[in-house]
């Protein structure tokens, strides 16, 4: 471990401004959502947009600040390692976020729904909806009026399989780009990184297509019982993470074009690459346990 003078940044306005923006976002979202049923969420929407706008400005400013510090050479290898630990543990926290939803999926599939259907040790719960039969995917819910089940589920061997291929290839292309960065092959870096971004966008396009099909043709919606609920929360949060990852890829691509990275110093690049691998691995889990099995 190296022990040069560690860079302790001077006072900064970004954190408190970011807290205010986060508060506006949260309070706005709460007011908007609470007003959805009564159409009274306008103030909420306004606060939410103000918060989002403020947060975007802050993120741009804060990151610019850090990038300038990095260019000025303020970060020792020890500081670089702090960033690496920070990003690794952040990704771990993201994994645990998905663990909560995967856990919910496994619980309802292996325990809750079979019990409702009268199987197993707690099968007495079948008395709630007598005659309800357990199945997975759950197309006939216990109460079809309140939660009308879907007519069918997404076929894993078309769009989802294609999307799997796309995301896995994108993990390879970003690795090729990273190797090109380390070998100082600039045009290869720009090319492979650009391909990764395009693959990410194609993935998102196909996910959107799939959602439209689910809503319009299959009746697979948020309202269609526990299958729809777990399907949309898992694929939805994954999709949001891919969206964020794609944005990060685009920003880091612009930084590549500006020549911000050297073979020795490119933590920002690696952090985005790690994040991209993380959304890729989560997708493999989704493909297996949400779509196929």
């Amino acid at each position: 471990m190296s022990h040069e003078t560690y860079y302790v940044p001077a006072q900064s306005r970004w954190p408190i401004l970011a807290s205010i923006a986060l508060f506006l976002l949260a309070y706005g979202a709460g007011t908007l959502i609470n007003g959805l049923k009564t159409q009274t969420g306008d103030t909420g929407l306004l606060l939410l947009l103000a918060g989002a706008f403020m947060m975007s400005l802050i993120l741009i400013g804060w990151f610019r600040h850090v990038i300038n510090e990095s260019i000025d050479g303020k970060f020792s290898p020890q500081a670089d390692l702090s960033f690496r630990w920070g990003m690794s543990w952040f990704i771990f926290s993201e994994i645990m976020f998905f663990v909560a939803f995967f856990g919910a999926l496994f619980y309802v599939r292996t325990l809750a729904v079979p019990w409702l259907g009268g199987e197993g040790e707690k099968g007495v719960s079948n008395m709630l909806w007598q005659g309800f039969e357990a199945q997975w995917p759950l197309l006939t819910t216990p109460d079809m009026e309140q939660f009308p089940g879907a007519s069918a589920v997404i076929d894993p061997w078309h769009l989802p399989l294609l999307n799997t291929a796309i995301l896995i290839s994108s993990s390879f292309t970003i690795t090729l780009a990273h190797h090109a960065l380390k070998a100082q092959r600039r045009s290869a870096l720009i090319l492979w990184h650009g391909v990764t971004i395009i693959l990410g966008i194609i993935f998102l396009f196909f996910q959107a297509t799939e959602y439209i099909e689910a809503y319009q043709e299959l009746g697979l919606t948020l309202h269609s019982g526990i299958y729809g609920a777990t399907f949309f929360i898992l694929t939805g949060f994954h999709g949001l993470h891919v969206t964020l990852g794609t944005l990060m890829l685009i920003i880091i691509w612009l930084r590549v074009l500006k020549g911000h990275f050297t073979p020795d110093s490119h933590f920002g690049y690696e952090a985005v690459a790690w994040y991209w691998h993380f959304v890729d691995v989560v997708w493999v889990g989704l493909f297996l346990f949400v779509y196929v099995f």
Binding site: F97, L138, P142, G225, I226, A229
Partner: peptide
């Protein structure tokens, strides 16, 4: 802490967006 975030998110979905994570009528629990 992310698991806590997950569980309150499922609550939010159940309350406002029609899911049935914690409602047996839709197969949840």
């Amino acid at each position: 802490m992310p698991v806590l975030a997950g569980v309150v998110t499922m609550m939010l979905m159940d309350i406002h967006f029609g899911t049935s994570f914690f409602n047996a009528a839709g197969g949840g629990d």
